[in-house]
């Protein structure tokens, strides 16, 4: 069979190029989708927990808003918009981290590492699947906020897009850092996938300006791109135009964090190969 005929034969491997990479990306995304659908407790991440968060923070908002003053309405907006946008960071991070952890839990890592799949194609697959989970989880929260508390997050308008984009990149960057730590330290580092979010949440000023934080942690908060994104969000909730300066600082911070996370992951992957850590999972 000629090379051209081989390239057209769907039962033969495609030549190197974007079509083959896309095939691999989809294969990884589909594998994660099967895991989600066949292990119902995994669906809690995109159904139950987001709804519980909406109920909790929505109820808190309703309680605060009972005073009827404008301040109550404002707090309600901060709480519900804040928690919904927080889930952009959370869902994007947790989907990619647990997508990788799944390979370690099922001892599939060695099988994958000896195939031609590139690291970028693998990450592309879990990111693609993570986006689907993100749409499910955040979409359900938006519907829940509207049905339970008549809060329309879409009312914030197009300003949501750049803010959500910054948060999305931060979520992916954190997941790359988590994967890097798991490669280096093994199962002991898995708790970071969830733990880091509990640290990041209060420091990012999701519901309040960081002036509300104790003075000694403010420098840490100021170093986080999420702080600027949520600050911009509160401004929009207050009815102000989007503060592009804040979004810009957040975007630069997210890109810097992403670049650092990628560099760190590449280093840890090299170390993983050099020290033979793959045998931990085989």
């Amino acid at each position: 069979m000629s090379g051209t005929a081989d390239a057209l034969d769907p039962t033969r491997p495609l030549p190197a190029g974007p079509r083959r990479s896309w095939l691999r990306v989809r294969a990884i995304a589909r594998r994660n989708a099967y895991v989600l659908l066949r292990e119902p407790h995994r669906l809690f991440d995109v159904t139950l927990w987001p709804l519980v968060d909406v109920l909790m923070f929505g109820a808190l908002a309703a309680f605060v808003g009972r005073g009827g003053a404008d301040g109550g309405q404002q707090a309600a907006g901060y709480l519900l918009a804040g928690i919904i946008l927080w889930h952009v960071v959370y869902q994007s991070q947790i989907a990619v981290s647990t997508g990788f952890l799944e390979e370690t839990w099922t001892r599939n890592l060695l099988n994958l590492m000896v195939t031609p799949i590139r690291e970028t194609e693998y990450v592309g697959g879990v990111v693609l699947f993570g986006l689907a989970k993100l749409v499910m989880g955040v979409g359900l929260m938006a519907v829940g906020a509207w049905v339970f508390f008549s809060f329309d997050v879409g009312g914030i308008g197009l300003a949501l897009v750049p803010i959500a984009a910054v948060l999305l990149v931060v979520g992916w960057a954190i997941s790359l850092l988590v994967i890097a730590f798991v490669l280096r330290f093994g199962h002991g580092a898995e708790a970071l996938a969830w733990g880091v979010m509990f640290v990041l949440m209060p420091l990012s000023g999701i519901f309040y300006p960081i002036d509300a934080l104790p003075r000694f942690v403010r420098p840490i908060a100021l170093a986080l791109p999420t702080t600027y994104a949520f600050s911009a969000l509160r401004g929009v909730v207050d009815g102000d135009p989007l503060d592009w300066g804040l979004v810009g600082i957040g975007a630069i911070g997210a890109v810097v964090l992403g670049a650092f996370a990628t560099w760190f992951l590449v280093r840890m992957l090299r170390l993983f190969r050099r020290r033979g850590y793959v045998t931990r999972y085989s």
Binding site: P13, R24, A27
Partner: peptide, 8 residues
């Protein structure tokens, strides 16, 4: 899944 990872 693995077939597609191998590009088929």
């Amino acid at each position: 899944m693995y077939g597609r990872i191998y590009g088929i």
